[in-house]
Amino acid sequence: MTPQDPLVSTAWLRDHLDSPDVRIVDASWFMPGTPRDPKEEFLQAHIPGAVFFDIDEIADETSDLPHMLPSAIKFASRVRKMGLGDGSRIVVYDSLGILPAARVWWHFRAMGHEDVAVLDGGLPKWIAEGHPTEDGPALPQERHFTPRIQADIIRSLEQMKTIVATGREQILDARPAGRFTGEVPEPRAGLRGGHMPGAHNIPLSALLAPDGTMLPADKLAAVFEAAGVDISKPVVSTCGSGITASVVALALARLGRPRSAVYDGSWTEWGGLADTAVVTGPAT
């Protein structure tokens, strides 16, 4: 785990599995309607010592939007009980490779905990390489966690309206191209198709290698350049519900831009309103 790279390899985690300051978090999550239960899968097999982070429960219960960032009090209360505290070197993984793990990485950073990384390739790569797993519930010892909200990497609806109006930040949408253009319907009912005016599009698949790991920095830089994104200038990422957007933020951190922001409500919020500006077709 280095300040330069927000991802760690399976080899790194294998070598640090028993380090007293390393804490491992399973952030597995699936789209609604997927016939898989991440909690049950965790009980069947997880990386030794891992605890389960429930994205849908450790969320803002006052919002109608899915898995919105919770209050600092709620977040701290939950992660303390999971044994995740000040001084922990947190490694987050998921059972898809790199997806909800990036969201939880962003959660911790939004709460001021910088010593957090994502396991590159996640549980699939870990298992494919023959590394150990264990079953059963986690039994962590409670630790103290001090939240410090980092507003600079969080964007709200009102902030996004200003960004669309002024162009002061580049908007990067991580949804698949068909959903971005409006040619493919959204998986969540009631949402308009299309994208925010001025947004660029980099689908999640463009950031990942065939084995599910994230592309190296030089190839990532080429992807952003091809999409018309100047990573030396401010970027805010968005997607369907703020999960894939966090993968964009992770990629930007790998490129040395760790303070890039995520629009928490993403298209579930923006596309579900009647008075937000929406355009269709390719990025212009």
Rank of each mutant, 00 (worst) to 15 (best):
T238W: 07
L13A: 06
V22Y: 13
G228A: 10
F145R: 10
P66Y: 03
H131M: 11
P210H: 09
D37A: 07
R148W: 02
D135Y: 08
G83Q: 10
Q150R: 14
V279Y: 09
G136V: 07
R168D: 15
F224K: 01
I149S: 12
T10D: 06
I163R: 06
H195N: 12
P210G: 01
G194A: 06
L96W: 10
I58T: 14
Y93E: 11
M111R: 03
A117N: 08
P282A: 04
S266V: 07
T238S: 15
I153W: 02
T284G: 15
W12I: 10
I98C: 07
I98Y: 02
D26N: 14
K81Q: 15
F224P: 06
V247N: 00
I24S: 01
S241V: 09
H113T: 00
P210L: 02
S19D: 15
G193K: 03
E40L: 15
R14M: 13
A222W: 09
P6Q: 02
R148M: 09
P38Y: 10
V262F: 05
L208V: 12
L139N: 15
A174K: 01
T166L: 08
P70F: 07
D64E: 15
G256H: 04
G33K: 00
A277L: 12
D152F: 03
G112M: 01
G190E: 11
V118K: 03
P32E: 13
L96D: 08
D218V: 13
Y93G: 01
A110D: 06
E186P: 07
E158L: 10
G256N: 01
G112Q: 00
L250I: 05
I24A: 12
W267M: 11
M31C: 06
P282M: 04
S241W: 10
P234A: 04
G281I: 09
L96V: 14
E186S: 01
G33H: 06
E40F: 13
V79C: 03
S77H: 14
N201D: 12
S260L: 02
L255Y: 03
E183C: 04
A177M: 09
A72D: 14
P70M: 13
S95Y: 01
P137R: 04
T284N: 15
I47N: 11
V248H: 15
A174M: 01
P38D: 08
V278A: 08
A59N: 11
W126C: 02
L215G: 11
L17W: 12
A277Y: 10
A110M: 05
I47K: 06
A251V: 08
V236G: 06
P137E: 08
L191D: 06
G228H: 07
E225Y: 00
D54S: 08
S156Q: 07
A174Y: 04
P66I: 12
F30S: 01
D54Q: 09
I153R: 15
A72W: 05
M214A: 02
V278G: 11
Y93N: 01
M68Y: 07
V92W: 05
K219E: 15
F180R: 02
I55K: 01
L252G: 11
S77F: 13
A165F: 03
W106S: 08
A128H: 06
I24L: 09
S9H: 12
G33M: 07
W270K: 03
P124N: 00
H67D: 08
E158S: 15
A76L: 04
S88A: 15
Y263R: 10
A27Y: 10
K81D: 14
L252A: 05
V248G: 05
A174R: 06
S9G: 05
G182W: 11
T213E: 03
A76N: 09
V278C: 05
